[in-house]
């Protein structure tokens, strides 16, 4: 396989609050290839969004990348470590939007209500290309047409609150692609949308990926979206990567009890009427009270007393591409 466009190596992003340190991302590593989709899946608060923001170096204070590498392979073949760049420096800003575009989950509040969508699009276009205002406006209209917005010549002067949720999310995609990035990170792009619109937005992302050979990171809590879109999957729990592998392996031979629990909680059309949907017992622990040992052990049905609540499991490779961090996989070689 070709070299990855983006390699995350042992990324740690912590939030230093008065009450203590929140380890939002605690050792994540993955590779992203052109034309491929990597799904990052997990419950709310597991560090998915912070991973996305870390990659772009836009983590809000008091958050900070503590260690790790974010290696971006540039168009000329050189490799840049985003962690080493000053966050507000010229180079990091050129990469933001220019190499890596980001689509957020809330299309309503992710656009400024005080500026027309054209104003924001033209700004994004001109940040990454030396175009006149007039040329940038023409480009903005092209972008709107590209993401399937009807009557783009008129919509360019509209405000976000004049558009429907689906159209707003299309504008967000146009905005993320305005700088012609090679990597697109979509952070829960369909969460705030109704089911029909969700399918349309996913289809849009897929067709844009085909046309431009985009590398896509799709962040979601929805295993259905992962099944439909992803080539590879990273499952996160409390900032830790618990399992990763190709999408088929994750769905057909999940290794980690958390992955299995997530899969059980997908509604199934074949289920008996009134059958109760499986849920994961308990809730995500408070970020300041992270359990000792494996963070998932208090909710895990297969936890081993005296082991899982004491030591954090190492990561075991199973097969060529799949790996999970779980004590259950530590079987003595027989």
């Amino acid at each position: 396989m070709a070299d990855p466009i983006l390699s995350i190596r042992d990324l740690h992003t912590y939030f230093f609050a008065d009450e203590g340190v929140v380890r939002a991302v605690d050792g994540t590593s993955f590779d992203l290839y052109a034309g491929q989709t990597l799904g990052i899946v997990g419950e709310s608060g597991c560090g998915k969004s912070v991973t996305a923001r870390s990659i772009l170096r836009i983590v809000d204070r008091p958050g900070r990348i503590v260690s790790g590498e974010i290696l971006l392979r540039r168009a000329d073949g050189s490799v840049t470590d985003m962690v080493k760049l000053p966050a507000d420096g010229r180079e990091a800003r050129a990469i933001r939007g220019g190499e890596i575009g980001l689509v957020f989950q809330e299309p309503m509040s992710s656009l400024s209500a005080f500026h027309t969508i054209g104003n924001q699009l033209i700004e994004a276009v001109r940040l990454h290309a030396p175009l006149s205002k007039k040329q940038a406006r023409a480009r903005a209209i092209e972008l709107l047409a590209m993401v399937g917005i009807p009557r783009p010549e008129q919509r360019v002067d509209a405000y976000s609150f004049e558009l429907s949720g689906g159209l707003r999310q299309r504008v967000m995609v146009a905005l993320a692609l305005a700088g012609e990035p090679r990597v697109l990170i979509a952070d829960e792009p369909t969460t705030a949308l109704d089911v029909t619109t969700q399918a349309q937005i996913l289809e849009l992302i897929r067709s844009l990926q085909r046309d431009r050979d985009l590398a896509v990171i799709l962040i979601t809590h929805d295993m259905g979206v992962i099944a439909e879109m992803a080539d590879d999957v990273v499952v996160m729990y409390l900032g830790k990567e618990v399992e990763k592998g190709p999408v088929d392996a994750i769905f057909h031979a999940p290794l980690h009890p958390y992955t299995r629990a997530l899969l059980r909680s997908i509604p199934n059309v074949l289920a008996e009427p009134r059958e109760k949907l499986a849920t994961i017992a308990g809730s995500i622990p408070h970020p300041f009270a992270r359990p000792r040992g494996c963070p998932f052990h208090p909710r895990c049905t297969e936890a081993i007393q005296g082991l899982c609540d004491v030591a954090f499991p190492e990561t075991f490779d199973v097969g060529a591409q799949q790996a999970a961090a779980c004590h259950l996989l530590n079987k003595p070689a027989a």
Binding site: D60, D88, S110, H115, H128, A176
Partner: peptide
């Protein structure tokens, strides 16, 4: 400053000073 549109403006590569003056200050 905590609103998502500020994050979006940063994500498209706008310099921090311009991000703040153009979007949240206006609001």
């Amino acid at each position: 400053l905590r609103r998502p549109y500020v994050m979006t403006a940063r994500a498209r590569g706008l310099a921090e000073r311009k991000v703040i003056m153009k979007y949240p200050v206006r609001a």
